[in-house]
Design a protein around this nucleic acid. Structure first.
Length: 926
RNA sequence: GGGCGGUUAGCUCAGCUGGUUAGAGCGCCUGCCUUACAAGCAGGAGGUCGCAGGUUCGAGUCCUGCACUGCCCACCA
């Protein structure tokens, strides 16, 4: 029995069931539409989580926002595709499996490449689906039938195609350069994978003896003395007078006893800094590398791939780089070469994966010549074809794009896309091809594939076009590319977003304009862009505003939070706190309050069903009357149907519903999730439950079925509509209750598949809203007086009201409401103002007092009135000053002037009433 | 060294394009188990919007400076 709800809302009892139902029924699967479809299309690609990943709050925020947008579009009639997938995450996954091997006492080198890769696939088979399983639990309405993995064969094909094309166009090259090298991961990494940290360290000054002069030295400064073993020159600025006489001379490199030249080079950014002379180590520093090329210096590598000193380091061979540093310093000291040791803050580069200090290393790698790609990527954003929300990220994007460096894409790993290049064993030529060549195309010799794999971001940078079938011309590409939106976090803006823009714009170049981005939009999406809007969401921090990190131990597991409060409550928390551009300090107290919100909705439903179950058998009302309401997608006005606005509260709630639908629509269209969440929260709890439900109660039990019938229709109608409004935010509870509303026979398989309420201005009723506000004001005033007088809650009291005829009529018509909600028995309307009456309350529209024998607490009353008077007087002063200002009257919009005048009049009336009341109090005292 | 953001109630945060009385949740105080909900109901207290100037008829909102604070980027030994 769907109506038989347990008393307390228990998310654990309903959420897994619906999560499973949505997947099993394939509710969110969409067929690829024909190319000529007229249906508006909305495409969103899920930023593929790492296969190694576990869900964290950042994912949950990300997915909540995406799911809200997706469900909202789907309910508005878009053909909506949300495409899920996972990323093979090169280094991360390889490390995971290596750890596993280590636990078995094995290493990847022992078992060999082929076995290792097989082992990773096996790992992925077992554990790789964890994060997507977690996504299912969140209710993410993705199309599971289209799931991809970035190592799938079709993705590999796209990767090879992209590589070969870029190579053929001269945009990929191979060469020996200084790269960021992680000696622990034993691979090159890109600039972006290096984290710079200001670390307290030392700067040492070392003197190099000048050959051919006695007691003459050049003093150089360094933070990495061990690299001096590879020095091949000392550089000074050509304009530096101090060293002019040494141009063309040589120094003797201490410890190594190697003669190296003194060169003049502009390597020195600032000749004032340090001693004005630097050691030059072309194999171990990017600047020195360049200087080495300019000056034809030899490159002497002194370290191996694990940053241990090699044979070129002479006596230091075999030492780790930091041991070597100590030893070098000791030896320099002993030889009298060490001039000074100073504290110095060094910007140390560390591997973003394992925090090992990066060693700049000379090695042969593959690079993307990025400038030409960046130019187009800048262009599409400048032209507005792609826009960022919040828009200030545009600047950051340009900043990065304009200072971009070539991208090192080769990794010395085993897990990843193999570079489609083959080396000839005979002539050392290179063949780059889509498929493995049989032999060298130049000399016919045997070939062997390059052992490196590609940076993970090379394959994810091809999304979304690769996920839609590129390089094939698939119907999916036709229908869904460009995608509409990308929702992601700031930290992968450069890693991923920027690269997708560069690569997609490059490969999809020349594609004509596609569909419109939104309903009723006259604009068309440009054909080559990967997405038209990038929404950058906030970082989720802990309740203290600290970044969540494993080392701090403040990481929240969303699944655990969900188990405690329910998915809906956690989703709602994230949505309600997701103001664009600001970080989220996730607080469980908020989640608790949103669970209470869910409970409130739950109990409102119980109340409804309890009454309905009595009314139906009595023939007062039948669900069939309601079933006629059109809520199916495609209906032009899927708001509240069959509503009969017969009373003030009916007109009011209908008006409010429409206004709320409008506000939510506007908020969601601009990604203002928090605003939308607040609006629906306030409407449901503060208006529907607190007022409408209370006001309508007597009509539900009215003896006259003609009175009761519309009340039921309205009550259920608004409830059902509100569920639809709320559904994208809280998909589970709304699904459960929506099915229950229809007694298990809903007009569609899911609330997610019916229409989102659209505002209807014809149903907005400002007069009813004003009237209701006055009525609420009266009820609250009476409750307030009662509380001040400490009247027994159960005791009914008579009241006197003074008001003009219009307001009086309003009160008379809603007499019952006042009596019930303010616990009043008998309302007398009086002709004269009640301002003098002790304990009366006044508003600009009415005075009210209760008839009660207990004396007013004179001093408390005086305090209250005095405070009120001060506030109002301040307001009056300000308002008068403004209204007396010619410039204000001339320049301010009429609406503002009118509003202020009205307010001033009200304030004046109130001040008068309060003065009277205060005078009266003084009389009482005397 | 560049760039971006924050500072609003005891706490955590909203406040979009400057416009009538600055809001929410939690916490706090008072009273209620009023048959939908104590995860609730009713009432209430609490803010010189970081500081100093400026623009404007009008500033929490725009500009300048300062203080504190967070983040991103960067090949100055």
């Amino acid at each position: 029995m769907p109506h038989d709800l347990p008393k307390a809302y228990d998310p654990g009892a309903i959420e897994p069931r619906w999560a499973e139902y949505w997947v099993r029924e394939k509710l969110f699967h969409v067929d690829t539409p024909p190319a000529d479809t007229t249906r508006p299309v909305f495409t969103l690609i899920l930023p593929p989580p790492n296969v190694t990943g576990r869900l964290h709050m950042g994912h949950m925020l990300n997915q909540t926002e995406m799911d809200i947008v997706i469900r909202w579009h789907r309910m508005r009639g878009f053909l909506t595709l949300w495409l899920p997938g996972t990323d093979h995450a090169g280094i991360a996954t390889q490390m995971m499996v290596e750890r596993q091997l280590a636990a078995e006492g094995k290493s990847r080198r022992e078992i060999g490449r082929e076995a290792f890769v097989a082992r990773v696939w096996e790992w992925r088979q077992h554990y790789g689906g964890a994060i997507l399983e977690q996504m299912r639990r969140l209710g993410a309405s993705v199309d599971w039938s289209r799931e991809y993995f970035t190592m799938d064969e079709r993705m590999s094909r796209a990767v090879r195609e992209a590589f070969v094309r870029l190579y053929d166009e001269g945009l990929i090259y191979r060469g020996k350069y200084i790269v960021n090298w992680c000696p622990r991961c034993i691979t090159a990494i890109s600039d972006l994978e290096v984290v710079h940290e200001e670390t307290p360290g030392k700067m040492w000054e070392i003197r190099y003896p000048v050959i051919g002069s006695k007691n003459e030295y050049i003093v150089v400064a360094t933070t990495r003395p061990e690299t001096m073993l590879g020095d091949t020159a000392v550089a000074v600025n050509s304009a530096d007078e101090r060293y002019r006489h040494l141009h063309g001379r040589k120094v003797l490199l201490p410890l190594m006893n190697r003669e190296i030249p003194i060169i003049t080079d502009d390597i020195l950014a600032n000749p004032e800094f340090g001693t004005g002379a630097v050691k030059v180590t072309p194999s171990h520093d990017p600047n020195d590398f360049e200087a080495g090329l300019r000056n034809n210096l030899p490159q002497i590598e002194v370290m191996n791939e694990t940053a241990q000193m090699n044979a070129n380091a002479g006596p230091y061979q075999g030492l780790d780089r930091f041991e070597a540093r100590q030893k070098v310093l000791e030896d320099l000291e002993r030889g009298g070469f060490l001039v000074s040791t100073k504290d110095y803050v060094v910007p140390l580069g560390k591997c973003s994966r394992c925090s090992t200090i990066i060693e700049p290393r000379l090695s042969t790698q593959w690079f993307v010549k990025i400038q030409p790609l960046a130019e187009r990527a800048i262009d599409v954003v400048e032209k507005g074809d792609i826009s960022f929300v919040p828009e200030n990220y545009t600047r950051t994007y340009f900043e990065w794009m304009r200072n971009i460096h070539d991208w090192c894409i080769s990794r010395q790993l085993w897990w990843g896309h193999r570079i489609p290049a083959w080396h000839c064993k005979a002539c050392a030529g290179i063949v780059v091809a889509r498929e493995a060549p049989e032999k060298c195309t130049q000399c016919g010799g045997p070939v062997e594939q390059d052992s490196d794999v590609l940076d993970t971001w090379f394959s994810s940078g091809l999304l979304p076009c690769s996920a839609l079938g590129w390089p094939e011309q698939t119907p999916e590409l036709d229908a869904f590319y460009p995608t509409t939106l990308l929702v992601t976090s700031f930290d992968i803006l450069f890693f991923w977003v920027a690269r997708m823009i560069m690569m997609n714009c490059h490969f999809m170049r020349g594609r004509g304009p596609q569909r419109a981005p939104d309903l009723g939009s006259a604009e068309w999406l440009k054909g080559d862009i990967p997405f038209s809007t990038v929404y950058i969401h906030a970082l989720v921090r802990d309740a203290e505003g600290q970044k969540m990190s494993k080392t701090k131990g403040n990481v929240m597991d969303p699944i655990r939070t969900i188990e405690r409060y329910g998915t809906d409550a956690v989703r709602f928390t994230l949505a309600a706190m997701a103001a664009p551009g600001t970080d989220i300090a996730f607080s469980e107290s908020r989640t608790e309050s949103y669970r209470a919100f869910a409970n409130k909705i739950w109990n409102a439903a119980r109340f409804l069903f309890m009454n309905v179950d009595k009314a139906q058998p009595a023939g007062v009302w039948s669900l069939d009357e309601f079933k006629g309401a059109q809520v199916l997608v495609g209906n032009t006005n899927p708001g509240i149907r069959g509503f009969r606005a017969e009373t003030l509260e009916d007109r009011w709630i209908l008006s409010r519903f429409n206004r709320v639908a409008q506000e939510i629509g506007e908020a969601l269209a601009t990604y203002r999730f928090h605003e939308a969440a607040h609006v629906i929260y306030h409407f449901f709890w503060g208006e529907y439950c607190d007022w409408y439900l209370e006001l309508i109660k007597p009509r539900l039990t009215a003896a006259d079925p003609e009175l009761a019938r519309p009340a039921y229709g309205n009550l259920i109608g608004i409830f059902e509509g509100a569920l639809r409004l709320l559904s994208p935010f809280m998909p589970f509870i709304t699904e459960e209750l929506w099915h229950a509303v229809y007694d298990g026979q809903p007009p569609a398989k899911s609330i997610a598949l019916v229409a989102y309420p659209q505002p209807d201005s014809a149903q907005m009723d400002p007069e009813a809203e004003t009237g209701m506000a006055i009525l609420q004001d009266l009820i609250v005033s009476v409750r307030n007086i009662r509380a001040e007088l400490k009247v027994e809650p159960k005791q009914k009291l008579a009241i006197e009201v003074h008001a003009d005829s219009g307001v009086r009529l309003l009160f008379e018509r809603n007499r019952g409401a006042v009596e019930r909600l303010a616990n009043v028995e008998g309302i007398a309307f009086v002709g004269q103002s009640l301002a003098k009456a002790a304990g009366a309350r006044s508003t600009a529209r009415f005075d009210v007092r209760v008839l009660y024998e207990r004396k007013v607490d004179v001093s408390a009353e005086r305090d209250r009135l005095t405070k009120e008077l001060m506030k109002l007087t301040q307001q009056l002063t300000r308002a008068s000053a403004q209204l007396g200002n010619e410039a204000f009257l001339a320049r301010a919009p009429e609406k503002v002037v009118e509003g202020l005048k009205r307010r001033k009049a009200e304030v004046e009336i109130l001040i008068g009433k309060i003065r009277t009341a205060l005078d009266e109090l003084d009389l009482v005292k005397q």
